[in-house]
Design a protein around this nucleic acid. Structure first.
Length: 814
RNA sequence: GCGGAUGUGGCGGAAUUGGCAGACGUGCUGGAUUUAGGUUCCAGUGGGCGACCGUGCAGGUUCAAGUCCUGUCAUCCGCACCA
């Protein structure tokens, strides 16, 4: 029976019944952990993106299984989060009810994909048996000082009276009511990811990730080398430090600037400037972060009325506040050098502040101000004439002697704010007791259950705060009355460790068994969207390192190798969206053509990493291809009893060659997630088989059959149900996925290549030998006789043979 | 503004990483099978009658460049006052 969606169901059932994809711990030494980013259970059906991510990563996993790896391939759901809560506010359906229902639908759909997922290890982050251990994770960080509380601003909508996530703020206004969003300071929990900034940066070199992603993380961490320099406030006790990467310009400092939020501001502002300063601070608070960081905005600021003492010259320089200085970067204070910094220059021009040149360009022309490059120092006392780079160190050295400064490395990375004023998330396992203060819930009392019966309509409080039953508890230390933390954890916390829990998902005593996960992890291949390059992937790396340092695991990096799938666009070339009406529903195609055709099209029609616009044309091409494979199998079965040769003669050479090439190409390409070319190799093989079948009258049936078997195996990762069916038709034992992957013989391939060249060309001519010392070499083009070539090949390992259209162009030795 | 990536037939996309560009597939043209349509099979298909010319554009290195170097344009994506 020709392939259709019915075949899918037949084999899915058989796979489930025989448990063929269950991970066998006995084979841990051959383990391969293959993981896709788990998904959020939205109400909708699986979209093309899911298929693209999960379907084709599964193809990779299937090849690995056939290559003898014990593949661990789990699946689960990132089930907490804002959408379910918003949906509840709109419809009144409880987040837990809608989420669990959505998960059920999605499980069904994922199973219809026919992937090799081992459902025994499924996790849902919103169930107590998972979030219990998310709370445990929080406590580990808390005990080691990596979780702490401090005040931090949140986006606040005064009209809805609620906290907004960044993505709910549109152009500075609330997405729901359009009111102007302001800031509000709340005491919130942070994870000290900055403690790992340097290691997060360094270890990027050790992992096989896309360079682009590493770059994003590198920028995110934002290491910069410079110096911290202390300034005293004139006629007061107060002092502050600035961070600078240009200590060489220290003599050019003509004023200093503090961030408006800097606590020192209140202290040092003079009486006559107080009103202006306070007014300025108020204005700043109104702005959203985006507005404030806009480069196009004109710089503004006010004078505090106080002066700072230059650490070397002793000069008095005015102290200003300005919103172009960020409280969260460096020390929140900068030394302004208007002559050699563009921002300081425009600011100084605007407010008529002194500009003093201290660097001249090295070519002696000076350079127009602001001159921001490196050069030679002038107007800098004993440092005159020294180069910028030398002066950077020399000046700091001088400051160091007086304890006024030191070299310092700064990071842009900020600590991770994990408190969310939301209901649908993991409760924070901390109580506040009048007696004992902040108290961690003992691990044995976990989980802190998320109460079901809570009013989560937005009215200015964390929803949990309104549940007396939840909030009022007893202090685990003194037994007195205590209140719980009303916030929940950022869902990125749930997803920062789920790959660990998969490995030991049924463990009710621990989050995971250390010895076991040290064997099963790290993840060997991680596949998911590039949009997680900065947040999720950085958080997960951090959590892994923190748990390592706490002795819970022994590896440094969670994901050894990472691939980002591209985006499949609508047929019109735009991102698929319901509003644009350009969505493609996988269901229709799967019903019509079967899941294998759909998956194979996704593999064939795009470069996996790039993605691209959907097109119906190529899906027909895949149908045709599948039909050709079926016809080959039919032809083979028909001819099995025919008379046949057993020797290999000239009629067989082409087929054998293409067979070798196909095995080599498909294997390497599938390995590298280049599914489009892998499938192309299979098509070439089909074409060669058709030709052989039509043209060679007395066949070498053994070769014919072997080639078809190889072909089916090469195709099987992309079309598992289809090939399973063919396998059965050929009378072979269940299952093709217990078979071994075809191997190719590199030496034979080289030999065949040369033989084919000889055969077609008669003689080998025009061989160019590239000498080993090719650096300054005249490359030599030598015409060699057959005899010479044989000598040349004798005892040499051949790196590559270049044959174009049957003509041997070059043989390159190793 | 800074940083990164990409640019190849009518279209989707290849090119063993410096080796006869355009694999594979679509589409198109012609032929065969079929009562016919569809299906299927085979052949042709970058441009030019030609020698030749062709990988965004202009230079360069090399026996050999889509691939390496310099400059430039376009599109996309990150970051965006980071001191």
């Amino acid at each position: 029976m020709p392939y259709s969606a019915d075949i899918d169901r037949k084999w899915q059932k058989k796979w489930a019944d025989t448990g063929i994809y269950k991970f066998n711990p006995a084979n841990i030494d051959k383990k391969l952990y293959c993981l896709e980013m788990f998904s959020y259970p939205s109400g909708a059906n699986l979209h093309v993106g899911h298929w693209y991510n999960y379907g084709l990563t599964d193809s990779w996993a299937r090849m690995k299984k056939m290559q003898g790896f014990e593949v661990f391939h789990p699946m689960g759901f990132d089930a907490f989060g804002l959408p379910a809560e918003n949906y509840a506010i709109k419809t009144g359906i409880h987040p837990q009810d809608s989420t669990l229902k959505n998960i059920e639908t999605m499980e069904g759909q994922l199973k219809e994909m026919g992937a090799t997922f081992d459902w025994d290890h499924e996790i849902k982050t919103c169930t107590p048996d998972y979030y219990k251990w998310t709370q445990w994770l929080f406590l580990q960080l808390y005990k080691s000082g990596l979780a702490y509380r401090k005040k931090a601003p949140v986006n606040w909508c005064p009209k809805c009276n609620t906290v907004l996530a960044n993505e709910q703020v549109i152009d500075g206004a609330c997405e729901r009511c359009d009111a102007e969003v302001t800031k509000r300071n709340l005491t919130q929990w942070f994870f000290k990811i900055t403690a790992y900034a340097q290691e997060l940066l360094d270890k990027l070199d050790t992992i096989d990730w896309p360079e682009k992603t590493k770059k994003i993380q590198t920028n995110w961490i934002g290491r910069s080398e410079g110096a911290e320099i202390g300034f005293k406030v004139a006629d007061q006790d107060a002092q502050f430090k600035v961070f600078t990467t240009r200590a060489d310009t220290l003599y050019g400092v003509t004023y200093v600037v503090l961030a408006p939020e800097n606590p020192l501001v209140g202290e040092i502002t003079s009486a006559e400037n107080k009103a202006a300063v306070e007014n300025y601070i108020r204005e700043t608070q109104k702005q959203t972060e985006i507005e404030r960081l806009s480069t196009v905005k004109e710089k503004t600021g006010v004078f505090t009325g106080s002066y700072a003492i230059h650490p070397i010259t002793g000069e008095k320089v005015p102290i200003w506040i300005a919103d172009y200085v960020l409280a969260t970067y460096g020390t929140g204070c900068v030394m302004a050098v208007p002559s050699h910094d563009e921002r300081d220059y425009t600011f100084a021009k605007k407010y008529n502040l002194t500009i003093k040149r201290v660097i001249k360009s090295a070519d002696g022309t000076g350079g127009e101000l602001p001159f921001c490059g490196y050069g030679v120092l002038v107007n800098s006392a004993e440092f005159d004439g020294i180069s910028s780079s030398d002066a950077k160190l020399a000046i700091v050295k001088k400051l160091e002697a007086d304890a006024k400064g030191s070299l310092k490395i700064n990071y842009r990375l900020r600590d991770w704010l994990v408190s969310r004023q939301r209901y649908w998330g993991t409760p924070i396992p901390i109580v506040y007791c009048d007696h004992c203060g902040e108290v961690a819930i003992p691990e044995k009392d976990l989980p802190v259950l998320l109460p079901y019966d809570v009013a989560f309509t937005p009215d200015g409080e964390s929803p949990l705060k309104k549940s007396d039953k939840f909030m009022n508890t007893v202090c685990p230390t003194c037994g007195g009355p205590a209140t719980r933390d009303p916030d929940t954890l950022d869902t990125f916390v749930c997803s920062s460790w789920y790959y660990l829990r998969y490995a030991d998902s049924h463990n009710s005593d621990k989050a995971f068994d250390t010895q076991w996960i040290n064997k099963l992890l790290p993840v060997d291949k991680y596949v998911g969207g590039a949009e997680h390059a900065a947040m999720h992937l950085l958080y997960a790396r951090f959590i892994t390192k923190a748990l390592r340092d706490l002795g819970h695991l022994n590896f440094d990096e969670p994901f050894l190798s990472l691939v980002h799938q591209g985006t499949i666009l609508g047929p019109d070339g735009n991102r698929m969206s319901k509003s644009k009406g350009n969505t493609i529903s996988p269901d229709e195609y799967v019903r019509k053509y079967g899941s294998d055709i759909f998956r194979m099209y996704l593999g064939f029609g795009f470069n996996y990493v790039d993605g691209g616009p959907w097109s119906d044309d190529s899906i027909k091409a895949i149908c045709r291809f599948a039909g050709r494979v079926e016809r080959l199998v039919d032809s083979l079965i028909e001819q099995r009893s025919n008379r046949a040769r057993t020797d290999i003669n000239n009629d067989d050479k082409d087929l054998n060659y293409v067979r070798h090439m196909a095995i080599k190409g498909a294997t390497q390409d599938t390995e590298r997630f280049q599914f489009n070319t892998a499938i192309s190799r299979c098509m070439e093989l089909v074409n060669a088989l058709f030709k052989y079948d039509a043209e060679v009258k007395v066949k070498n049936l053994k070769l014919f059959e072997q080639t078809i078997i190889d072909l089916i195996k090469l195709v099987s990762p992309f079309a598992p149900h289809f090939t399973e069916e063919l396998w059965e038709q050929l009378g072979f034992e269940y299952s093709i996925f217990n078979q071994s992957w075809p191997e190719f013989d590199e030496k034979a391939l080289v030999r065949d290549t040369i033989e084919i060249a000889v055969q077609i060309n008669g003689t080998l001519r025009g061989i160019i030998e590239i000498s080993a010392n090719a650096e300054n070499s005249e490359a030599e083009a030598i015409a060699l006789s057959d005899e010479k070539i044989k000598q040349f090949l004798e005892g040499k390992e051949i790196k590559k043979v270049i044959v174009v259209k049957g003509r041997l162009v070059n043989i390159v030795a190793k």
